[in-house]
Every structure is written in C-alpha cells, then in structure tokens.
Simulated assay, not measured.
Amino acid sequence: MSKEIVNLDAPLFVTWYQCLVSSFICFILSTSSKIAPNFVSLPQGSPMKWDVFHKTPFSQHTSKYSVLCCAVIVSGFWLGVGQENEAGSLSIVGTIFGVLGSLSLSLYSIYTKKVLPIVDQQIWLLSYYNNVYSSIIFIPLILLNNELGEILNYDRLWDLKFWLLMTAGGLCGFSIGYVTTLQIKVTSPLTHNISGTAKACAQTVIAAAWYEDSSSRSWLWWFSNGVVLAGSAAYTRVRQIEMEKAFSMPTQSKEVKL
C-alpha cells in the first residue's frame, strides 16, 4: 500500500495481515461448505494435518525449444544489465536481490506444482494451507525485524479506514494468490515464471516510454527489452504447439482403438 496513505514502516506486519485475511476467507468458506453444502462447495481439509509435507516425486520434461527460448530471454536480460551499468543506473544490491527474488519465485512455483497432487489438485485447499502456515511463520519474523514497536506507536492503529485498506489489500492478495496457483496448475512452473518476466519487462518498457524521454535510453536498452519480449512470445508459441500435441494424442489413441 502507498506510504502516503498508510505510512506504516512494517512491511512484514502488512504481509502477515494479508495472509491472515486470506486464511479467514478460506476458513469461512470451509465452514460454510459444511453447514450448507448445497450452496457452498469447498474441498475439506485442515492445515493442522502435516501430510502435505510428505515428499512426492516431481519431474516435468522441458523441450529443447523451450530451453532455447529461455536462453534468449536470459541473454536479453544480460544485455539490459550491461546497458544499465553503462548508464550508471545499475544497482548491484538491487540486481542481487532481484536474482534471489526470481530464484525464490521459481522454487515456490516448482513446489506448488509438486504438492498440488497431495491436496487432489484443489487450489482452495492449498491456499488455505499456505496462508495459515504463513500467518504463523510471519509472527517471529515481525518480532525479529523490530516491527512491534512501530505497530504499537502507529498513530492510525485504531483508525477504521486503515483497517479497511489493510483488509482490501488482503482480499487482493488472496485473489492474486489464487490466480497464481491456478496458472501453475494448468500450465507449468516455468510458464508461470516466463509470464511474470514478460509482464515485468512490458511494464518497464511502458513506464520508460511514458515517463521518460525515449532518447535518454540507448537503442541497445530498447533492443534488450525487445529480446526479452520476443523470447517470451516465442516460448508462448512453443508451449502452445506442445500442449496442442499433448491434448491431441489421447484423441488419436481413442480413434485407433475404435
């Protein structure tokens, strides 16, 4: 949320509250499905059951054409980093954290795909588990980050508008989390990461074109972003062809049997 509106220097607390809101939504829906199953349908499960941590095999083949598209995307980013360095706007710390963030997202996507079979491919149930566990994990992190004093001394802590904004943020976070898991479920972790990369790159290009003078950027900078977007588009086409082949094979097998 905007610092001008909330002005609370406690990012972990804000994230914790969003997880708490998402957990509450899942709990209400789960309880409602038990009371009125004809009106609300939700898979049953409890976050207190630890079988979700059991290991399950996960392997997904990536074609050489998909790998080639990924190589194109990486080369575009590499070229863009070089241009930022020449322009004097490169932040080494920012680059390192960006890479670590991408690594975390990749691992999250892979593990999400891995554990979905444990919850019978039920996105609602996995969201319930994730948010309850996150709500617990964030508590010691908030204390370690010394955010408790910031929260208690916040002058708008008992302001209804503040909590409405926080709750709205939680609702948005829940929606984004659901769509993210849905995309990973119906595609693949790699596809999810590529789509996020393309979105971020497109946002960068639009922002640079809208808020900056286009001449302030070198042609290689624009070219590097074009390479990333072209590689992402090529990956999309490759995966589309592969998925069409995968879905057509069962149909062909049935026709042969008939």
Results as ranks from 00 to 15, higher is better:
Leu165Trp: 07
Asn38Gln: 09
Glu244Tyr: 00
Leu107Tyr: 12
Tyr133Trp: 14
Thr15Ile: 03
Lys254Asp: 15
Phe53Cys: 14
Trp16Phe: 13
Val40Pro: 01
Asn131Ser: 11
Asn131Val: 10
Leu182Phe: 15
Cys69Trp: 03
Leu141Trp: 11
Trp124Thr: 03
Lys199Cys: 10
Tyr108Trp: 01
Val52Asn: 02
Val40Gln: 00
Val74Asn: 03
Thr56Phe: 09
Trp163Phe: 05
Leu12Arg: 14
Ser63Gln: 10
Phe39Gly: 00
Ser75Met: 12
Lys64Trp: 09
Phe27Asp: 00
Glu212Lys: 05
Val40Arg: 00
Gln60Asn: 12
Lys245Trp: 00
Lys64Gly: 05
Val93Gly: 09
Asn131Thr: 15
Lys34Met: 09
Lys113Val: 03
Val238Ser: 03
Glu242Met: 02
Glu212Tyr: 14
Val115Gly: 06
Ile110Met: 06
Tyr154Ile: 00
Leu144Asn: 09
Gly177Arg: 00
Leu258Ser: 11
Ala230Tyr: 15
Phe247Ser: 07
Leu20Thr: 14
Gln83Pro: 04
Ser63Glu: 13
Pro47Val: 02
Thr187Met: 08
Thr95Asp: 05
Ser41Gly: 03
Ser66Glu: 15
Val40Leu: 04
Ser109Gln: 07
Met166His: 01
Val72Gln: 03
Asn85Glu: 15
Gly94Asn: 04
Val205Ala: 05
Phe223Val: 03
Met249Lys: 08
Thr204Ala: 13
Leu105Gln: 09
Ile96Met: 08
Gly98Met: 02
Gln44Phe: 06
Ser41Glu: 06
Cys69Asn: 11
Gln121Ala: 08
Arg217Leu: 12
Thr236Tyr: 14
Thr236Cys: 13
Gln122Asn: 12
Ala198Trp: 12
Gln240Ala: 09
Ser216His: 13
Ala202Ile: 07
Leu144Asp: 07
Ser109Lys: 01
Thr167Trp: 06
Pro43Trp: 01
Trp163Met: 02
Thr62Arg: 08
Ser214Tyr: 10
Ile137Arg: 10
Phe13Arg: 01
Ala87Gly: 14
Ser134Val: 02
Thr95Gln: 07
Leu105Ala: 15
Trp163Tyr: 08
Phe174Asp: 00
Ala10Val: 07
Gln183Pro: 04
Leu116Gln: 02
Leu152Trp: 10
Gln44Trp: 08
Leu190Arg: 02
Asn146Leu: 07
Ser195Asp: 06
Leu229Asn: 08
Val6Arg: 02
Thr112Gln: 08
Met48Tyr: 01
Gln183Met: 11
Ser66Ala: 14
Ile142Thr: 02
Tyr65Asp: 11
Gly169Thr: 01
